[in-house]
Design a protein around this nucleic acid. Structure first.
Length: 397
DNA sequence: ACTGCAATAAACATTA
DNA sequence: GTAATGTTTATTGCAG
């Protein structure tokens, strides 16, 4: 993964509110006040109280937000379910189950004191810690039908990352660019998913979903890992907020894995059936439901540009697709090196089906295990947040 | 220094 | 004709 937040300095200048703040070391206060770690844990966590405001300002970094975002999602019990059609409804809920507009929205609309109001304002202007690919991925994944038109993707991003509302319109271009260029996203035939309007629906290519998940993990895990191993060196801008250590309930890799596990669950065949069922506009298992030609005749993209690469990735490059473009994007064009999601590959025989099922079971087991683990965390968070609320009440009296 | 990746800009084509 | 959408190319900066 390359730079995630990285924008060229000169380009950054075009992005309102980002440059000066980030350059000056004023870390993007993801979630700022009112966000999970601070608002819900900060008041109660001894660790958090140990953090002075300056440190908090400095350490309220992307991961902070990520942590919140993911946990909120999982608290919900799975993305998509509650989301209004078109990604309109926020799938993000705070840990208490209260609906929240999203990390930034909650930050900007929070009334729970915490950091200064200016900090909250800044948070709105801070660039999301996710690449466009991941933003798109999240938007799509959190849509009920697991497919969104570009417009709705814009909407989702705008809703959850108000930064973009004030950002130059170039980000939309970037979104489209990503959709178009990133192998992870597939265009769905319009008449299947969209009755009218311009443009197509976009969905996540199941083949690359693991890659995206992995990317999502990779993108924040390195810092998340630091939760467990506090840096020996003085806290830097990239060092994790220590207040994320939630009363002995620190975020560990397994926790982040739990986060991705949730997504994995959503990508499980059950979900596939759900999402591509009768009420779903798209059926990814049908090659003809996806417009796949576009990337095939596209020349080898710049080495892996825009794509998430796992080992299987290279195998999936166009070069390895001798078939027609349509077939290339179809589920059957999957590289043999990495077994496809069972739901997407028509089993050649019973054995293949069995193997696929076993693999799926394994995956589900892992996901379930991670979720169980997550449940413990959630309990911890709830306890923490309730304690915080109590403290707050008492403090007011 | 090199390479890969992501972000961004821009031009162009297509479509509603 | 216009705006939205989709595709493609080029450039830049950062990180490994």
């Amino acid at each position: 993964m390359g730079p995630i937040i990285g924008m060229s300095p000169d380009k950054k200048a075009e992005s309102p509110g980002v440059v000066a703040e980030e350059r000056a070391g004023r870390q993007a206060p993801w979630g700022g006040a009112g966000t999970l770690p601070e608002a819900q844990c900060g008041a109660s966590s001894p660790l958090a109280t140990r953090l002075d405001q300056a440190a908090a300002d400095e350490e309220l970094t992307n991961l902070n937000w990520l942590h919140e975002n993911l946990l909120q999602n999982f608290t919900l019990g799975g993305p998509g379910g509650e989301a209004a059609p078109g990604g309109g409804g926020s799938p993000l809920f705070d840990i208490e189950g209260e609906p929240a507009l999203g990390p930034l929205a909650s930050a900007s609309s929070s009334s729970s004191g915490g950091a200064g109001q200016s900090g909250e304002r800044d948070s709105v202007k801070s660039k999301p810690p996710f690449s466009f690919s991941l933003l798109i991925y999240m938007a799509i994944e959190q849509s009920p039908s697991k497919s969104l038109p570009v417009k709705d993707i814009y909407g989702w991003i705008l809703e959850h990352f108000p930064y973009f509302s004030s950002a130059p319109t170039g980000w939309k271009n970037s979104v489209r660019h990503n959709l178009s260029l990133n192998k992870c996203f597939r265009k769905v035939e319009k008449n299947l998913g969209k009755v009218n309007g311009k443009g197509s629906l976009w969905c996540v290519d199941p083949e690359y979903r693991p890659n995206l998940i992995q990317a999502l993990k990779k993108q924040h895990f390195p810092t998340a890992h630091a939760f467990c191993t506090p840096p020996a060196s003085p806290p830097s801008a990239s060092s994790p907020p220590r207040h994320l250590l939630l009363q002995g309930c620190s975020l560990k890799e397994s926790d982040i894995d739990a986060a991705t596990a949730m997504m994995l669950l959503n990508s499980a065949p059950g979900h596939h059936a759900d999402r591509c069922g009768p009420d779903s506009p798209l059926d990814l298992s049908r090659p003809d439901s996806v417009l796949g030609g576009r990337r095939a005749h596209r020349q080898p993209r710049r080495a892996g540009s825009e794509g998430f690469h796992s080992d299987e990735d290279s195998d999936a490059e166009p070069d390895t697709y001798p078939e027609s473009p349509e077939q290339r994007r179809g589920p059957h064009g999957r590289p043999s090196s990495s077994p496809p999601p069972p739901s997407l590959k028509a089993p050649a025989n019973k054995r293949a089906r069995r193997e696929a099922k076993a693999e799926l079971d394994e995956e589900l087991k892992e996901a379930a295990g991670s979720l169980l683990h997550l449940a413990g965390i959630r309990t911890c968070l709830e306890a923490t947040s309730k304690h915080a609320a109590r403290s707050k009440k008492l403090g007011r009296k």
